[in-house]
Simulated assay, not measured.
Amino acid sequence: MSALDDLKTDLAKLRDEAKVQVHLGTMETKQEWEEIEAKWNRFVAEAGLHKSGEGIKAALQSLGNELRAAYQRLKQAI
């Protein structure tokens, strides 16, 4: 599990705990909750991009290897 996954797990737990408190809280607390929820949604979205970024990196590496092999074959054919 990566540090980002650990952070996400910890934040999710804190979020659940805070959600209960907000339900019992004041209007000011609920407004702050809404602001924090917007940040949470951004964090989750960007954490997902991190994972897809790793997939993109692997795909680019594979493509680079294919290109290298193709260039080497072309060079030998000439």
Rank of each mutant, 00 (worst) to 15 (best):
residue 35 E to A: 12
residue 35 E to M: 11
residue 35 E to K: 14
residue 35 E to G: 12
residue 36 I to T: 05
residue 36 I to D: 07
residue 37 E to G: 06
residue 37 E to A: 09
residue 38 A to Y: 06
residue 38 A to N: 09
residue 38 A to G: 06
residue 40 W to G: 01
residue 41 N to C: 04
residue 41 N to Y: 00
residue 41 N to G: 02
residue 41 N to P: 02
residue 42 R to G: 07
residue 42 R to V: 08
residue 42 R to P: 04
residue 43 F to K: 00
residue 43 F to L: 09
residue 43 F to V: 04
residue 43 F to P: 00
residue 44 V to H: 00
residue 45 A to M: 11
residue 45 A to D: 07
residue 46 E to V: 00
residue 46 E to S: 01
residue 47 A to Y: 03
residue 48 G to E: 00
residue 48 G to W: 01
residue 49 L to F: 15
residue 50 H to R: 14
residue 50 H to L: 14
residue 51 K to W: 08
residue 51 K to R: 10
residue 51 K to A: 15
residue 52 S to N: 13
residue 52 S to Y: 08
residue 52 S to D: 15
residue 52 S to F: 11
residue 52 S to Q: 15
residue 53 G to F: 06
residue 53 G to S: 07
residue 54 E to C: 03
residue 54 E to I: 08
residue 54 E to L: 13
residue 55 G to F: 05
residue 55 G to E: 14
residue 56 I to D: 05
residue 56 I to Q: 10
residue 57 K to T: 14
residue 57 K to G: 09
residue 57 K to E: 08
residue 57 K to W: 07
residue 57 K to P: 03
residue 57 K to R: 13
residue 58 A to D: 11
residue 58 A to C: 07
residue 58 A to E: 15
residue 59 A to I: 05
residue 59 A to H: 03
residue 59 A to E: 01
residue 59 A to P: 02
residue 60 L to N: 15
residue 60 L to R: 10
residue 60 L to P: 05
residue 61 Q to V: 09
residue 62 S to A: 12
residue 62 S to E: 15
residue 63 L to S: 08
residue 64 G to F: 10
residue 64 G to M: 07
residue 64 G to Y: 07
residue 64 G to A: 11
residue 64 G to H: 14
residue 64 G to C: 06
residue 65 N to I: 07
residue 65 N to K: 15
residue 65 N to H: 12
residue 65 N to A: 15
residue 65 N to Y: 07
residue 65 N to M: 13
